[in-house]
Computed example of a mutant assay.
Amino acid sequence: MTTPKISLREVTKTFPGRGGDAPFTALDGVTLDVAPGEFLALVGPSGCGKSSLLDLVAGLSTVSGGEVLLDGRPVTGPGLDRGVVFQQYALFPWRTALANVEFTLEAAGLGRRERTRVAREALALVGLTGFEQRYPHELSGGMKQRVAIARSLAYEPEVLLMDEPYAALDAQTRESLQDELLRIWRRTGTTIVFITHGIDEAVYLGQRVAVMTSRPGRIKDVVRIDLERPEDPDSDLRSEPGFTRYRRQIWELLHSEVRRAGELEEAGAR
């Protein structure tokens, strides 16, 4: 039996209360496996703990209970085996695209010539050949996110963790980057966990879609997406009947959770 690449076992995350408030439980008893090379999309209502879960896998935060395993070993902190891409590009404005990608390679101890070679290859992988010397203010939002993805892929992480990376982009750019990400995933075989609020995006990208409950976050269901993905770039998978069925299934799973999350917010505001 293949060891999961990522394994969460009864994971709980609690944050201390402030100003006399009770402790806040973001995640409660989350159990989930992600296979090596799998593309898993994660959806759930706002405030359900999706980002907290990603932080735990990234090693940016520690569990309050349960365990997070990578290749069967406990995650004890950040590592170069995991790359993270956030919604905000987090690029250094004083560095060129090439120098931004080289930054993580400096931490990995590569020499200058090797850093430049690897960074150029990573930018080529995301379709930015010719833009190596551009600064972030000279790039569009979509191009900035490509640089952020290239930076995370440059040191060849085994796992790529993506927290709503396309949320701030226009629809056309978002769809273009979705296709680009799928192309990169097929080429590299990287295990990807992708957080999104978009049901269409989750169905389009994920081999499986994990649906979370409202706070405290738990795994409500995991839907396997079994769609024939044509190689023809002009084909429209989103208009296929199967795509619509999966979208409806996930929407039905989410609908009651979104309503409950709204009720909790309203009660908390009183």
Score class of each variant (00 low, 15 high):
residue 212 M to K: 03
residue 208 R to V: 06
residue 215 R to M: 04
residue 203 V to P: 00
residue 162 M to K: 06
residue 178 Q to R: 15
residue 166 Y to T: 01
residue 200 D to G: 13
residue 212 M to P: 00
residue 194 F to V: 05
residue 164 E to D: 06
residue 179 D to M: 13
residue 165 P to H: 11
residue 209 V to P: 00
residue 215 R to V: 02
residue 164 E to W: 11
residue 195 I to R: 02
residue 159 V to G: 06
residue 186 R to G: 07
residue 210 A to M: 07
residue 157 P to G: 05
residue 218 R to C: 03
residue 168 A to W: 02
residue 192 I to E: 06
residue 198 G to H: 10
residue 164 E to S: 09
residue 210 A to G: 05
residue 206 G to F: 03
residue 177 L to A: 09
residue 206 G to A: 13
residue 174 R to I: 07
residue 152 S to N: 08
residue 186 R to L: 08
residue 211 V to L: 11
residue 185 W to L: 08
residue 167 A to Q: 12
residue 221 D to P: 02
residue 195 I to Y: 01
residue 210 A to I: 02
residue 162 M to L: 09
residue 202 A to Y: 03
residue 161 L to D: 02
residue 189 G to V: 05
residue 163 D to Y: 01
residue 204 Y to I: 01
residue 212 M to I: 01
residue 193 V to H: 02
residue 218 R to T: 08
residue 189 G to F: 07
residue 191 T to K: 08
residue 182 L to K: 15
residue 154 A to M: 11
residue 223 V to C: 11
residue 152 S to K: 09
residue 206 G to M: 05
residue 174 R to A: 04
residue 158 E to K: 12
residue 153 L to V: 04
residue 218 R to I: 00
residue 185 W to H: 15
residue 183 R to N: 06
residue 159 V to T: 04
residue 199 I to Q: 02
residue 167 A to T: 08
residue 176 S to A: 15
residue 175 E to R: 14
residue 153 L to W: 00
residue 177 L to W: 02
residue 215 R to P: 01
residue 199 I to V: 15
residue 156 E to C: 11
residue 155 Y to I: 12
residue 200 D to V: 13
residue 163 D to P: 00
residue 170 D to K: 13
residue 194 F to L: 07
residue 221 D to H: 13
residue 198 G to F: 08
residue 190 T to G: 03
residue 210 A to F: 04
residue 157 P to Q: 06
residue 168 A to M: 05
residue 204 Y to D: 01
residue 172 Q to Y: 07
residue 210 A to C: 12
residue 200 D to P: 12
residue 194 F to N: 05
residue 172 Q to G: 10
residue 164 E to L: 11
residue 152 S to F: 07
residue 179 D to N: 13
residue 207 Q to E: 14
residue 211 V to W: 01
residue 156 E to K: 15
residue 155 Y to F: 15
residue 177 L to E: 00
residue 216 P to T: 07
residue 189 G to S: 09
residue 157 P to T: 02
residue 219 I to K: 09
residue 222 V to Y: 09
residue 182 L to V: 10
residue 205 L to D: 00
residue 165 P to I: 07
residue 202 A to S: 13
residue 195 I to N: 04
residue 169 L to G: 05
residue 188 T to R: 14
residue 202 A to Q: 08
residue 220 K to P: 00
residue 173 T to H: 12
residue 164 E to N: 09
residue 177 L to C: 10
residue 186 R to Q: 12
residue 174 R to K: 12
residue 166 Y to F: 15
residue 201 E to T: 11
residue 185 W to A: 05
residue 218 R to V: 05
residue 179 D to H: 13
residue 161 L to R: 04
residue 218 R to E: 02
residue 151 R to C: 11
residue 154 A to L: 12
residue 193 V to L: 15
residue 204 Y to T: 04
residue 168 A to S: 14
residue 209 V to M: 02
residue 197 H to A: 10
residue 181 L to S: 04
residue 216 P to C: 06
residue 214 S to A: 15
residue 176 S to Q: 14
residue 177 L to N: 01
residue 190 T to Q: 05
residue 218 R to P: 00
residue 209 V to Q: 01
residue 178 Q to A: 14
residue 215 R to I: 04
residue 220 K to A: 13
residue 181 L to F: 07
residue 162 M to Y: 05
residue 213 T to I: 01
residue 222 V to G: 11
residue 218 R to K: 14
residue 178 Q to S: 14
residue 192 I to W: 08
residue 209 V to S: 06
residue 214 S to I: 01
residue 205 L to G: 06
residue 174 R to W: 03
residue 151 R to A: 07
residue 188 T to G: 01
residue 160 L to A: 07
